[in-house]
Each structure stands twice: as structure tokens, then as C-alpha cells.
Amino acid sequence: MAMLHTVNKSPFERNTFDSCISMAKSGSSVLLIEDGVIASLKGTSVSDKVSKAMESVTFYVLGPDLNARGMTDDQIIDGIKVVDYEGFVDLTAEHENVQAWL
């Protein structure tokens, strides 16, 4: 059954994102929240890594956290879906289990 992973640390600051994608199974989902949203930015030195992970995992990013840090929907990697808090709740309900990577 599919698992929802949340990542709340910047990929530039911690290896939380790397640990997550190394263990996220094909078909599972990753939701980027808080400073984790930095991984969703287009044209950074980690965006290739994110794009590669997107081949087997569905990526979401929490819009309010993205906007707070001065980023807009058009600045993120194509294919990452922006959700609001309600979307966050829906994702939690839709998935069998949630693993919060800290």
C-alpha cells in the first residue's frame, strides 16, 4: 500500500530529502513542507535529483509554505503538484501510512 512521506528540511541543509527518496518505494508520494519546499525549486543544484526521483514517486508541495518563502507555482519543477492544507489532509487520508522525515 502506498505511503505518504513528508520532508520538512531543506535539501541544502540536511540529508533528510536524500534519506527519504532512497527509501520511498515506487508508487509512493512525497509531500514537501516547511523548509522542505526548497527542494521543489526549478534550476537549483538539486533539481536534477528531484526530477529523477519523480520517475517513480509522485511529488507534492505545500503552497502556503512555498509562498511564505517568496516562491510561486511557476518557479517549481514541472510535475510537482501544489496543495493547500486541505490537500495535505486529503493526502494523509488517501495514503495507507504517513512517514514524517524530520
Binding site: D35, I38, G63, D65, G70, M71
Partner: peptide, 20 residues
């Protein structure tokens, strides 16, 4: 490092309930 985001233009914090 990520400190550069502190002075990023266009910060909108209404959605997270924190002061911009």
C-alpha cells in the same frame, strides 16, 4: 546557504499564519 532565502522577494506568509 539557505540564508539567501531571507531576502528573497515576494514572501507571502498569510497562508502559514506567521509575520512576514
Amino acid at each position: 546557504d539557505d540564508g539567501v532565502f531571507q531576502i528573497k522577494k515576494g514572501q507571502k506568509t498569510d497562508g502559514i499564519g506567521m509575520k512576514n
